[in-house]
Every structure is written in structure tokens, then in C-alpha cells.
């Protein structure tokens, strides 16, 4: 029997990349991720999409591969289980712990209590789905369950992130790139209102089975469970009908009333985030292809290495930003709440 390699020691600042499959995990590891995060099949994590996520065998293979390359593996079990799937959620925690994942990413306090009680040695990370937007909420999870890291919702300004980091002993991980939630993660029931399925319960938002595309004389239309989410002029690029990114009518105006289809790119504030003491930069996108994961990981690895070498004066070079825009939803990016142009 081969000896398992020891758990990798993390660098002071980690690049955390998504892996929805074994090939995506290999791509992230190969292109410079310090850690990857995965989910298991079934409704235990917030990217519960068909064809996505890991069987136990795949997870074991992925873990061995990542550890051999010095890369940590985090497992997301970040739905809020109800009585019907409580036993499955606990069993998944237990099996993930036995597998030897480097951390569990949890949102549900009850499930955290289970993990803290039965696997006291296991690192717990508070998922973005835990909606912790202030140090006192994070302190609740630290005091009750000993969480070691919290992933911040994508609603805080850069200054708020800086102040929060200064007030907490818990490591802070923030989103750096990928699709953007404009709502506080874990505090959004828009999807279940329209489709009956939500991020909190089923681990999905605006699920594909509720989407319908139509070609009409007025243009291509997207519907979610019958509700018209958007209508596109001929030649206009049509995006996935995530319901908060549709065009709606308010008063007499038709516009993206909640959010434009655009991606988050935090590289403009990366030096500030590092200087503030943020410990990890997270890339969204477990639903993305291995090729996407490879490209994004490679670009962000380069950005991070350059930024760490150059210090506070570093700014993202134009070719890097252009390359990332090419991979982004809507082919454009925003600093989102970090900068708050709408503030």
C-alpha cells in the first residue's frame, strides 16, 4: 500500500480554484491553483448541476493527485439540509472527513455542529452561503464551531473587507473572479419563488429544467418557469437567464433592474486585499469546463505571482484584463461591490 503524501502546507496567500470534475481538478492543479474546491454528487452543495461533481472514487483520486502536487482540496457541502436529507448530509460530512479533505466548506449551523462534534480535527470554512457580512457574525461561527476561515459574500466594499479582516481572528477568503451574485448569498429566494428550487435547499439557481428559449418575431426570448426574463434583438448576444440578470420594466423603463450580465474581476483591488490580510482569493465556477478552469487559473496565477512580487504598486496589465474579459460572462467585468460605482 502506498503511503499517502502529507497534507500540503498552504502559502501565505492562496489561489482557490473551482473543480466540478476530475479533469477540471487536474487542470486547476496543473495551472497553478494552491487549493481546489469540489462538491459531491447530489443535493449537498451549491452547484448541484447534472453531470457535475465528484463520486467518492473520483474524490479520492482527485485528492491523491492534488496532494501529490502540494495542492489542498476543500469540499463544499453548502446547502441547508432539511429533515429529509439530514442523514445524507451528515454521512457526507463523515465520509469527506474520512477521505482526508483539507477543509469542509459549510453554511448550515446545525451541520457545523455535527462536524465540530464528530471531527474536531477537521478544518471548517464558512461558506459564502453562510451570509456572514460582518465580524460579529463570523465570531458566532468561530465561538460555536471553531471555524478557521470565512468566505465573504460579494456585497462588501474593499474598505469594509479591510475593516472586517482587522476585527477577526478567522482567515478571510474573498471572491476574485467569476459570475457575480448581486444578492447576499444565502439570503436569496428569488430562484425558488420562480422555480421552486433554490441555492439554499437544492443547491441551484435558475435551474436549466425551468429554462425555455423561444424564437419570436420580436427576437429571441428566454423564460424561467414561464416568466419572461429577457428578449434579445437580432444579433444581440444572449446569456443564460439567471433571473436577477434579466431585463424588466420598472415604471416606464426597461433595463437590467437588478444586475447586468457581467463577471466579477477583483484584480484592480488585489494589492489592497493582500495588504489588508485577506488569506485567499476564490474563483467562482465549478460548473465551468476544464478548459475554462485551466485558462482562468493560469491567468490568475500569473496575476497573483506578479502582485506578490511587485507589492502595492502592482496593477493588472491590460493583456491580462482583456484575456479574462474574454472568458467572462457578458465578456465584460466589474469590481462589483468592492468598488461600488452605484454607491
Amino acid at each position: 500500500m502506498t503511503r499517502e503524501p502529507p497534507a500540503p502546507t498552504p502559502p501565505p496567500f492562496e489561489l482557490v480554484c473551482p473543480a466540478g470534475s476530475l479533469p477540471a481538478l487536474r487542470a486547476a492543479v496543473e495551472h497553478g491553483a494552491d487549493a481546489v474546491y469540489i462538491g459531491f454528487r447530489g443535493a449537498t452543495n451549491a452547484r448541484n448541476f447534472p453531470g457535475l461533481n465528484f463520486s467518492w472514487e473520483e474524490a479520492a483520486t482527485g485528492l491523491a493527485h492534488a496532494h501529490a502536487q502540494g495542492v489542498r482540496v476543500f469540499a463544499a457541502l453548502n446547502v441547508y439540509p432539511g429533515p429529509d436529507n439530514w442523514a445524507l448530509a451528515c454521512e457526507t460530512v463523515d465520509r469527506a472527513a474520512a477521505l482526508g479533505v483539507d477543509a469542509l466548506i459549510l453554511a448550515d449551523p446545525g451541520l457545523m455542529a455535527h462536524a465540530a462534534q464528530h471531527h474536531p480535527e477537521l478544518r471548517l470554512h464558512l461558506s459564502v452561503q453562510g451570509s456572514a457580512t460582518n465580524w460579529r457574525a463570523i465570531e458566532f461561527y468561530r465561538r460555536e464551531f471553531g471555524i478557521r476561515r470565512a468566505v465573504l459574500p460579494r456585497v462588501l466594499s474593499c474598505t469594509q473587507v479591510e475593516r472586517l479582516v482587522a476585527r477577526t481572528a478567522v482567515e478571510i477568503e474573498v471572491f476574485g473572479f467569476g459570475s457575480l451574485c448581486v444578492m447576499v448569498e444565502g439570503r436569496c429566494a428569488l430562484s425558488s419563488h420562480v422555480t421552486g428550487h433554490s441555492p439554499n435547499v437544492q443547491g441551484v439557481c435558475s435551474p436549466a429544467q425551468a429554462v425555455r428559449w423561444e424564437e419570436t418575431p420580436a427576437g429571441r426570448q428566454s423564460r424561467l418557469n414561464g416568466v419572461l426574463i429577457d428578449r434579445y434583438a437580432p444579433g444581440e448576444a444572449a446569456g443564460y437567464p439567471t433571473l436577477c440578470k434579466g431585463r424588466f420594466e420598472v415604471g416606464s423603463a426597461v433595463f437590467h433592474a437588478l444586475e447586468e450580465p457581467t463577471s466579477l474581476n477583483a484584480l484592480d483591488v488585489l494589492p489592497r486585499l493582500i495588504a489588508a490580510g485577506v488569506r485567499a482569493l476564490k474563483v467562482e465556477g465549478r460548473q465551468r469546463s476544464p478548459a475554462y478552469v485551466a485558462q482562468v487559473t493560469q491567468l490568475l496565477r500569473r496575476a497573483l505571482d506578479d502582485c506578490l512580487a511587485d507589492g502595492p504598486a502592482w496593477r493588472p496589465p491590460q493583456d491580462l484584463t482583456t484575456a479574462l474579459d474574454g472568458l467572462a460572462e457578458g465578456r465584460t467585468h466589474t469590481l462589483g461591490a468592492y468598488h461600488r460605482p452605484w454607491q
Binding site: 456585497v155 448581486v182 447576499v184 439570503r187 461600488r340 452605484w342
Partner: peptide, 15 residues
């Protein structure tokens, strides 16, 4: 009316 979601952004101001 069901309270469904919160954001940092003010949608009434945006509108």
C-alpha cells in the same frame, strides 16, 4: 409581499 432577497445595492435608487 414575500421578502425574498437582500443586496448591498439599492434597487429603488438604481431605478
Amino acid at each position: 409581499r414575500l421578502p425574498l432577497a437582500f443586496s448591498a445595492r439599492c434597487f429603488t435608487a438604481r431605478a
